[in-house]
Computed example of a mutant assay.
Amino acid sequence: MTVIEMIRSATTGEDATARRPDVRALGGGAATALAGWCVTVVLVLLAGLAVPRASAGVGEVLGAGSLLWLVLGGARLHIGEGVLALTPLLGPLLLVLAARTGARRLLPEAPDLRLQGAWLGGYAGVGLLAALLGLLSPVGPGWLSLLLPLVALPALGLALAHGLPEPLLERWDQAPLSLRRGLLPGAKGAAALLVLGAALVVVATLIHIGRVAHIQSELDAGIFGGLLLVVLQIGLLPNLGIWALSLAAGPGFATTGGAMTTWSGAETGLLPMVPVLAAQPQPGDLPWVTHLLVLLPLLVGGLVGRWALAEVPRLAPTQTKLAAVLAAVVVAALGVVLLDALGGGSIGAVRLSDIGAPALPLLLALLVELALGALAVAARDWWQLRR
């Protein structure tokens, strides 16, 4: 049964037409959340049955599956004195798309705020039940962090399905024109940066595929468990892409215990048992060509500048063009850093409590490098018009 079929079957029946619209909306939100939860729990259950050394009971597996569904949406988990804050960034994307599908199919074409609120309430209600099921596992959810997977992500899916509420649209119309012009180019720039970072990870993985395969085999997760591990690592590709992007931009990234990998070299450190992390540079000095990676954010900055200028009339004043270009640069840099914050940077305590890209240095580096590339394109545009 597909996710769409599960959503449909949860709301069909002879008495569906007799329900009140708000009750149907409530049930639609609950069915949407339940579909995603079921898919995740079934995968975890199958993996638990397939792993040769697994000893967890059904209750613990249900709890782990429920927590995994919440983690995919950005929730944080408490593990003893540490925090698991590592969300595969493909997870929120998939959950938003699932919420969009459920909202489009299970709500009227133009639902009012009351129906949208009922749909969100049904979604959040199932999510809270999943969080309670998560208490069956040895770890527990961070309750405040549940606002992201249970409210923010379904609300975004709802907005994609039926548009923003009228008050928000009015506020957006009152925003500075430069920001409105720079939003889409900046979003495209952030996406381009992520793609380049992910490409660096893929190249590094192919170069060191032997080390990665060795760690994968040492985990002895079985066929299905190994397949699920590969899927989770694919979900982590955007996260690791941000790490690689931080290396290209200059700040670098940390593995464990403060061990940094930067242009100058890689420091030794205990690696988490995630096979793809074996593709990172080995401890020691890195070749001088590593510095050339800075050309990547500079090139993306040029693209951002070009896209931003396309949003402005050709003969507009230079100040207007610069305002749109700089707004796009800020949106692109902030977009990457916000995604980095969503992805998190902790998988435990002590040496595993702080890994990944440093947010503030990465933001400053991207602002400078993107701005240099974008302003170079803006200067070329000004020169062509002056001639």
Rank of each mutant, 00 (worst) to 15 (best):
V336K: 08
M1K: 14
T318W: 12
M260K: 07
W172P: 01
F253I: 05
S264T: 15
E60I: 04
P88N: 01
D112V: 02
D340L: 12
K321E: 13
R306T: 12
A244M: 05
P111L: 11
L372I: 14
A161D: 00
S137V: 00
R19A: 15
I79N: 07
A159F: 01
D381P: 09
I223L: 15
V126D: 04
L97E: 02
L150T: 13
R104V: 11
R380T: 07
L362Y: 06
T255V: 15
A204T: 04
V44R: 11
A308E: 00
P149K: 08
G80T: 04
M1A: 14
L322A: 15
R306V: 01
V231M: 10
P92M: 04
S353G: 14
A191R: 12
L148R: 12
L72F: 08
T318L: 12
L295N: 05
Q116N: 11
L72Q: 07
S178F: 04
L46F: 04
G29R: 10
A310Q: 13
T101R: 15
V300K: 11
A198Y: 03
D220A: 14
A357L: 10
P149G: 10
T12R: 12
L240I: 10
L144G: 10
P176H: 09
E166K: 14
W243F: 12
D220Y: 06
M6E: 14
L179E: 06
V126W: 08
R387E: 09
G269P: 02
C38H: 09
L158T: 01
A56Q: 09
G225H: 01
S217H: 12
L367C: 06
P108K: 10
Q216G: 12
T12D: 10
L49K: 00
T17M: 13
A213G: 00
V330R: 11
P88S: 02
V276G: 06
P317A: 12
H291L: 13
L136I: 00
S353L: 13
T255G: 08
D354Y: 11
R20T: 13
T256C: 13
A25P: 00
E5H: 12
E81K: 10
V231N: 06
C38R: 09
P358T: 09
L228M: 07
L177M: 08
L236T: 01
A332D: 05
L296R: 05
L200S: 08
E267G: 05
Q384L: 13
V300H: 09
G269Y: 01
L169W: 12
G226M: 02
G73P: 00
W383Y: 07
L49E: 02
L146D: 06
V276C: 03
G74M: 09
P154M: 09
A199Q: 07
